[in-house]
Design a protein around this nucleic acid. Structure first.
Length: 568
RNA sequence: CGGGAAAUAGCACAGCUUGGUAGUGCAUCUGAUUUGGGAUCAGAGGGUCGCAGGUUCGAAUCCUGUUUUCCCGACCA
């Protein structure tokens, strides 16, 4: 390809809208352009690279035995009502009507569609197991689109759904996808970690997330360096460092005027945070119940765990208002579990290990001191706190670490969550009708594309891994008007073009300008044709370490052809 | 949806306090000179100053409303 025929709209300055490196670089390198918030156009260079990401995903999915299909972004309301999600999904679902007033949505995910497809085409155990996937555009009306492709309202996802006859089959399908994902992200050159995850709105009973490690990631990973334990912060389970047990003292009521927060109480009573228990009342809008959650003062309540405890999903969980708290017989700032019975009490297990601690007295300006679990109150014991760095690993007991990650993929075991309500069944060997066991597996393709850039850039620009670079190599004559340089550039281009993806930068620009462009765009190998053109010697710049070597044309060809062939 | 900030040429920004000709750099076009690291000179094109209303002889500037964008939180591939 000749650079003079391409669209290379590089920007010298970073557009105001971007703040993280990968987003700035995609914009500056002319890979994408914003249409509206959370929606982007892919320009030629960006699209080439994106297609390569898709190709790798496709190759590995096909290798795993999965079958590719393509469905529509437009989905009828009826299917969503069958699964119960038309109501449950909330405002994130883009909904619209046609001229006949029929309702539709733009698919944020495709469980309903695939389940419907399979129930109408597969009837026998002989046709199972089955794994069907697609690479297709998804729509989610995000509250806050962010960081370019990282969280868009329109994005490309690879979604796969497996159908099995039983749990054992599902386990196998799940394992295959788990391994396939590991291969995909490895081939894409991502530094990633697999973590245990909560199942969230999609539902189901087991899940792992694939996290590309990065400081700008929106997820926090809690992991153990000693053993292999790793989990999303939302899901992570840990033990707090142990406290000294004291002899139980008599419970007392103390005046704590205007001391509402844990910090204020701690300071006022001169007690450390871990001698105080935090009581929070949550309300689940779908299951319509309140729950009081008690955690140790130096911990946060994990709202995902709250949602699970209240049989709700996180979207519907909120803190109770002051009025609601009053109607339950307590008062904001002085909530506590002692002599409280208006709603269920959930006690974090770390609280059961505390002795002589402080809680609210459900009475304005009073707290109770020397409170003890079981002697003074009771509740449903479980894990409701947010795990944090320094906690002890639930597997081996060593201190846990934390790191940020970009969630690029997730695998779920759905079980019969969709097949049961949607009646997706098969006949087994005994002629008995059974619901299929399903799994679902997603990769955020556009997000993965950005994650690659986030992990592969330097001070000059993007440094694409060869396999996902828009082009493999670019030939840059210092002065294309110079007769010798022109001849050598053309000759090298002829030698390479049919074998590897080559750009010849024939633009009438100064060398510095052209180099800056390609370094920004991230083409890994740049050939400079300059003063030694007469001797047929050129310079090869390697963007991975920014080193340069002088080579003959033949050597350049052998080098790059070899590199590209090695990818296959 | 809560809290903050912003909106002036393709991009980055000044002008607004104190109302009076819409500007700078980069990019674009023409010509010339340049060609080993974002060239120089000369010239040119490009704007409903986000939108609507108000105040005023006169509004980019002051007032009101509105929309959009970005950032921080709650949600997810």
């Amino acid at each position: 390809m000749k650079a003079s025929k391409m669209i290379i709209p590089t920007l010298k300055e970073a557009p105001q809208e971007a703040i993280i490196d990968s987003h700035i670089l995609m914009l500056r390198a002319g890979l994408i352009r914003k249409l509206v918030s959370g929606v982007y156009n892919f320009l030629p260079l960006g699209l080439r690279s994106l297609h390569k990401v898709e190709k790798i995903i496709k190759e590995e999915m096909d290798r795993s035995g999965a079958l590719e299909i393509l469905s529509s972004a437009m989905q009828p309301k009826e299917l969503w009502e069958e699964s119960g999600r038309w109501k449950k999904y909330g405002p994130e679902l883009f909904r619209f009507k046609d001229r006949h007033d029929h309702e539709y949505c733009l698919g944020p995910t495709h469980e309903e569609i695939f389940t419907d497809l399979v129930r109408n085409t597969v009837k026998s155990y002989k046709q199972l197991p089955l794994n069907i996937y697609q690479i297709q555009t998804k729509y989610r009306d995000e509250m806050r689109p962010r960081f370019g492709l990282m969280r868009g309202r329109e994005f490309i996802m690879k979604d796969a759904y497996s159908f099995d006859v039983d749990e054992k089959g599902l386990d196998e399908s799940y394992k295959i996808m788990y391994d396939t994902y590991s291969r995909i992200f490895t081939r894409l050159g991502l530094n990633f970690q697999v973590v245990l995850a909560d199942t969230g709105a999609i539902g189901g009973n087991a899940s792992h997330q694939f996290m590309a490690l990065s400081d700008v990631g929106e997820s926090t990973i809690i992991y153990c360096e000693n053993c292999s334990y790793a989990a999303d912060e939302e899901k992570a389970y840990s033990h707090a460092s142990a406290l000294e047990k004291e002899d139980l003292k008599d419970r007392e009521e103390v005046l704590t005027i205007d001391k509402h927060s844990i910090e204020e109480i701690s300071e006022f009573l001169n007690l450390p945070l871990y001698k105080i228990a935090k009581s929070m009342i949550y309300y689940a809008e779908d299951s319509k119940q309140y729950g009081m959650f008690i955690v140790r003062g130096d911990y946060e309540v994990n709202e995902i765990k709250v949602a699970n405890a209240l049989n709700s999903s996180e979207v519907f969980i909120r803190l109770a208002s002051d009025e609601e708290i009053a109607s339950l017989g307590s008062i904001t700032g002085f909530i506590g579990p002692v002599n409280f019975s208006k709603c269920k009490i959930f006690v974090d297990e770390e609280v059961t290990k505390m002795t002589n601690f402080v809680v609210g007295a459900n009475k304005k300006d009073y707290h109770l001191i020397n409170v003890n679990y079981q002697r003074d109150f009771d509740g449903i014991v479980g894990d409701y706190k947010k795990a944090k760095e320094g906690d002890l690993c639930p597997v081996c007991g060593k201190p846990l670490k934390s790191e940020r990650g970009i969630e690029v993929g997730q695998v779920f075991k759905l079980g019969t969550k969709y097949s049961l309500p949607m009646n997706c069944t098969f006949l087994n060997e005994q002629g008995k009708t059974l619901p299929m066991m399903m799994g679902c597996y997603g990769i955020g393709v556009t997000r993965t594309f950005q994650a690659i850039i986030e992990q592969h850039h330097d001070e000059y620009g993007i440094v694409f891994p060869l396999e996902t670079s828009p082009y493999h190599i670019v030939i840059v004559p210092v002065n294309y008007d110079d007769e010798e340089q022109h001849r050598v550039s053309d000759q090298l281009y002829e030698m390479l073009d049919s074998k590897v993806e080559t750009v010849l930068d024939d633009r009438k620009m100064k060398i510095g300008f052209k180099m800056k462009d390609w370094e920004l765009i991230g083409i890994p190998y740049i050939v400079i044709v300059g003063r030694r053109a007469l001797e047929n010697i050129v310079e090869l710049k390697n963007r991975f370490d920014n080193s340069k070597v002088e080579l003959t044309l033949e050597q350049v060809k052998d080098f790059i052809v070899d590199k590209v062939n090695n990818l296959k």
